[in-house]
Nucleic acid binder design. Sequence first.
DNA 1: CTGAAAGCGCTTACAG
DNA 2: CTGAAAGCGCTTACAG
Lengths: 340, 340
Amino acid sequence: MKKEIITLKKLAEILNLSISTVSRALNDHPDISETTKEKVKKLAHTMHYIPNLFAKGFRKHRTNIIGVIVPNITHYFTTTIVRGILEEASKRGYRVIISESNNDVKKQTEMLDTMIQFGVDGILASLTKMTRDIDKILPTINTVPFILFDKVSTKIPCTQITINDEEAAFNAVEHLINIGKKRIAIIKEREFSYNSEKRYAGYLRALKEHNIEVDEKIIISVDDISLHQGKSMTNLLLSFKKRPDAIFTITDSAAIGVIKTLNKFNIKIPEDIAVVGFSNNINSTIIEPKLTTIDQPGETIGKTSVKYLIEEIESVTDNITNKMIEIKGNLIIRDSTFKA
Amino acid sequence: MKKEIITLKKLAEILNLSISTVSRALNDHPDISETTKEKVKKLAHTMHYIPNLFAKGFRKHRTNIIGVIVPNITHYFTTTIVRGILEEASKRGYRVIISESNNDVKKQTEMLDTMIQFGVDGILASLTKMTRDIDKILPTINTVPFILFDKVSTKIPCTQITINDEEAAFNAVEHLINIGKKRIAIIKEREFSYNSEKRYAGYLRALKEHNIEVDEKIIISVDDISLHQGKSMTNLLLSFKKRPDAIFTITDSAAIGVIKTLNKFNIKIPEDIAVVGFSNNINSTIIEPKLTTIDQPGETIGKTSVKYLIEEIESVTDNITNKMIEIKGNLIIRDSTFKA
DNA sequence: CTGAAAGCGCTTACAG
DNA sequence: CTGAAAGCGCTTACAG
């Protein structure tokens, strides 16, 4: 079933040229005459010559493969990043190998090792939730160009690409203030997470700049920021004597849980309680009322990550300065905060 | 910054052994004495020897890479398949390279070529919507083991893995009949699509087996089966004198459009009109009422595809019989058809 | 049980 | 402008 494989050697034999010349002709080496080049290229074309990229990569100590690790490939936002990565990588002649850590730190470490062993030219990683033992990751950073995106950690010395969490959250909360809300609750993550902390910081700054007192009671921290937690925390918030008039959650899924619960109790959104999420999931327009949220430009994050990674890979010098890149997220105002 | 690379040669020098012996020791060749093996393995371990898989693959004419092509990586169902593929492939020692065709036939062809050129051991593909010119795909099938999943085409002679579209649709429609519905509309795709046709066939069979007359008026075909089309086709259906009492759509997104429109007109679901989708998207539990639908076990489809592909890759004989594998989807009954 | 040697398909200094 | 040769890191028939 296998077709005969055409190699440089075969072409050389047919053309009565040396392998070196054929190789150089195909690579447009300036030393080779135009006539020879044409001859060689023509034959290569008609015989459907396909260079063996493995031999090439092996020879050049380069594989042109980028390794990508994500915690969960089924998250919509992640897939938009992946799309950006695939597009930019393929445009620049790189292939992409993807692994999913399933938020398992051990798996993540294994995958990093496997990728190194496999000979990827560089790695793009989004960390698992609980990546505390940075020790396991540091060795790989020193082996191969390494960049973090989305779920990052300042403890790891490398270039990191995130959304402008703090500023975007600030804008979201300021929007709530602008529509007249004065008692704004936040639902965030309890465990330290870069994104959650930044968004919380943005929340605090917005309140401060608008002289709104911070009330610890309506700052809710949960272990697992999910639709389910959004529901139960809303129940909690509704049980307070002084109910909030707006709820900002650091993810859309939690925000959807909030809306579902408010709907259940026939609480008017946004009049009684406004809701803002973060991510612009596909779900955010399925729920009624549609959710005001921050659109995270996943494709841009993916493309940018690839750009910086390839820069490191192809850089001739070894002294790379680590950068913190923030991609702008945009507030999308929908019915959950605004009544047309 | 690059660490020194340990090779077989280096190990051999240190141990005063030949490269061949070291290689064999590491690969547990029976000829090598236990003492030597131990010595070699110990040093390899302490020196963190990592075999160069590219050299290995190059030597053995095998890359242990599987190429995967999907039309749209952001679709939830696709990501669950991808998850299954990644898991099964990694378990069997294969890496996965993913490409997204964006439903562009030309891109799809290019990607197939690139993958072949890159030397993947086999390809797993889900086709673009309009893959009519099979000619472009046939050459690759003859070059490398090739399997289709999800979006398949009977015109291509290869093993194909799909959900049991016909049967699942039959079950869905029979369920509607069982809850007392007698005038069941279907929203399907106009252009020939394997999945759509199969689901339509299941619909017809269910009506037939229950002696319900087929009414062409409520068999709606659209170009693009989307939420938006779900909405407009519902408007159309509602304009009929004889309205349907149930709507079966061949995708969840269309079904969600249906529900949104019915909600808008305060039509009771499921009492006045019941709704069934197909896929079990995440969205199907966000919408109210929650959507009855067919759960497609994406992970199983992914794993099964990998299983059959690797079987072909590692098969010694060339005569492989093409199989049509159907993975069972399960009807998930929710509020859009059932009132507890 | 171990080693020398060939070879996978390519690139590239070196020589002419 | 072209060629012979070395070498990337590994495996494996062949020989001893």
